[in-house]
Simulated scan of single mutants.
Amino acid sequence: MAKIVITEFMDDAAVAALAQQHEAHYDQGLADRQDDIAALAGDAAAIIVRNRTQVNEALLDAAPGLKCVGRLGVGLDNIDTDACKARNIAVFPATGANNASVAEYVIANAMLLLRGAYQSTNAMLQGEWPRQALMGRELAGHTMGLVGFGAIAREVAVRASVLGMDIIAHDPYVMADDPGWQIARNVSLDGLLELADVVSLHTPLNDKTRHMINAEALSRMKRDAVIINAARGGVIDEEALGAALAKGSLGGAALDVFETEPLTAEAGMKFSGLKNLVLTPHIAGVTVESNIRVSALTVQNVLNHLTGSGL
């Protein structure tokens, strides 16, 4: 029986499935206590995390018996994959399990931001009737621009196309003959920023993508365009985005990810008082359904690997 440490929230049924075969230590608050994770992982064969737990050199050094890392999600920027590889520690993201949830998040926010009519409850209850002020736009007939054209972006493309949007995308790593281009037009990044009414980001965070959307990039966008980031926080320069929204050179934004998470009151000051802005706490890929799928897939990956390791 192997020890498995789970540091962030997970579907209860999946935890129970692990506990039937191994010693499962589940504490969804561990992500806030990195030192405690290291102490618990000292004799662990596996660790299961989301995006807040830092699987770094220090943690790996503290867990000499670690065989694998299960990631409840797909982003790996909180996991030192090179260090894991050097130690022969397998890393298992839950690839594909939350695609639909993120795609629906993007479409929902595209509707919210273009329509601009869903924050009128207080005004209505105060006796106002701001009908003309809340005349928004439809998705149909407008252009969805996808920065990055992987699996989640393609889910967005399918949904946006059904709603009557024109789809354009930029991804230098997708070959020109990829069948995905049948539902999206392949354009340059500058061309996408200039043409899109809705820009949705779907890139990992690395040295090439950090602050890819900076002041210069934002200045290329249409004045009434909106941008949605459910990928990684550092892809957008938040100071530049706040400034663009404040001066009215951008139509709106939805952010589910931030340069520093959790977003503190101090860090959030750059967005204070802005209209047509949606902020959510990294939940685009987290729904009841996706949590079940992500957790089940992670359990399957970890159990298979431990069984193959003779544990």
Rank of each mutant, 00 (worst) to 15 (best):
M1A: 10
E8M: 06
E8G: 10
V15A: 06
A17E: 09
L18R: 06
Q21T: 04
E23G: 03
A24R: 03
A39S: 05
A39V: 02
A41Y: 00
I48P: 03
T53S: 10
V55C: 07
N56Q: 07
N56W: 02
L60I: 08
L60N: 10
D61V: 02
A63F: 02
L66Y: 02
V69R: 05
G75C: 09
L76F: 08
D77K: 13
T81H: 06
D82H: 08
K85T: 15
A86R: 15
A86S: 14
A90W: 02
A97D: 09
N98R: 10
S101Y: 04
A103K: 08
V106T: 12
I107N: 09
L112W: 03
L112R: 15
L112Y: 04
G116E: 09
G116T: 12
Y118H: 15
Q119G: 15
T121V: 10
N122H: 12
L125E: 06
Q126K: 15
G127L: 07
W129L: 13
P130A: 14
P130D: 07
R131L: 15
M135H: 15
A140S: 15
A140E: 12
H142I: 12
M144P: 10
M144Y: 04
G148I: 01
I152V: 12
A157I: 00
L163Q: 12
I168L: 06
A169S: 06
P172K: 08
P172M: 05
V174T: 10
I183F: 01
A184C: 05
N186A: 05
D190P: 07
G191W: 03
G191Q: 07
V198T: 05
L201E: 01
M212T: 05
I213S: 03
N214W: 01
A215T: 05
E216F: 00
I228A: 09
A230T: 05
G233K: 10
E238T: 06
G242D: 03
G242T: 04
A254V: 14
L255Q: 14
F258A: 07
E266V: 08
E266Y: 01
A267W: 00
A267E: 04
G268E: 00
M269K: 15
L274G: 11
V278G: 14
T287Q: 08
T287S: 15
S290V: 01
V294T: 12
T298I: 00
Q300A: 12
Q300S: 13
V302P: 04
H305L: 09
T307Q: 14
L311P: 05
